[in-house]
Design a protein around this nucleic acid. Sequence first.
DNA 1: GCCAACGTTGGC
DNA 2: GCCAACGTTGGC
Length: 152
Amino acid sequence: MTYWLIKSEPNAYSLADLQRDHKTAWHGVRNYQARNMLRDQMQVGELAFFYHSNTKVCGIVGIAEICRTGYPDISAFDPADKYFDPSSTPAEPRWFVVDVQFKQKFAHIISLQALRANADLASLLILRKGNRLSITPLTPTEWQTILQQATE
DNA sequence: GCCAACGTTGGC
DNA sequence: GCCAACGTTGGC
């Protein structure tokens, strides 16, 4: 069982949007490292922290659950879509999605500042300088540490 | 295969 | 809006 952290700009798609939609295809990821995790690693039932990036207060706002394993990202096939990529075709898809469903919204955001302030999270990938991966794995210890922080 | 140019991410 | 960090592209 791997734990995950998925980033989204709330202007584009927030946890509230996921709560409203119940589930969604996590589309538009155009990075090979993240693609490989979507395609090969993320399993049904695994949990992911939902992180709001590029906003007034960045941080973890809740939890989503993977409810379908990797399959081709059809947004890459549509010329009208902002995520269109002509090098990805139905016959040879380059980009993948998983489906995620709403699981939980925290009472309070765990801000990036609060995450940085927690010495037990020094190894957390998103806290590493220059990290830009939109999907990262977490150790069970990191997961538990953050969960505990969510209830404080 | 190198690397400069360019585009994107994302915190501030 | 700025800009550091990073990934990708493409000429050579």
